[in-house]
């Protein structure tokens, strides 16, 4: 697990405005990480326009916006408030057990 946390240190949640939906996703992702027992990952949020390489190691957006992110590691959430589902998706990306 140590190996993984080193790989992903920052997750950025993004939405169109960067103030509402992304903030909700931030809470969801934080809750999901907690349930996965992952610590030390910084979860930030902001508008889609802030997405750039190096800003974060993984980007989280709503499913509909996933296609707008090119070439960067990203996942799309179908239900922005469902932390269980988010945890499932994160588990895959973080490659935990």
């Amino acid at each position: 697990m140590d190996r993984m946390t080193q790989k992903i240190r920052t997750i950025m949640c993004c939405c169109g405005n960067g103030v509402g939906t992304s903030l909700i996703m931030q809470m969801t992702v934080e809750e999901a990480l907690e349930s996965l027992g992952m610590m030390g990952i910084n979860v930030i949020f902001g508008p889609l326009s802030d997405i750039s390489e190096g800003r974060a190691d993984l980007f989280v957006v709503s499913q509909e916006l996933l296609k707008s992110i090119n070439k960067l590691p990203a996942i799309g959430l179908a239900d922005l408030m469902d932390s269980d589902m988010a945890a499932e998706q994160l588990r895959k990306v973080l490659e935990i057990g």
Partner: peptide, 8 residues
């Protein structure tokens, strides 16, 4: 931007 404001 489509339906991204649907949080559920």
């Amino acid at each position: 931007a489509g339906p991204y404001m649907f949080v559920t």
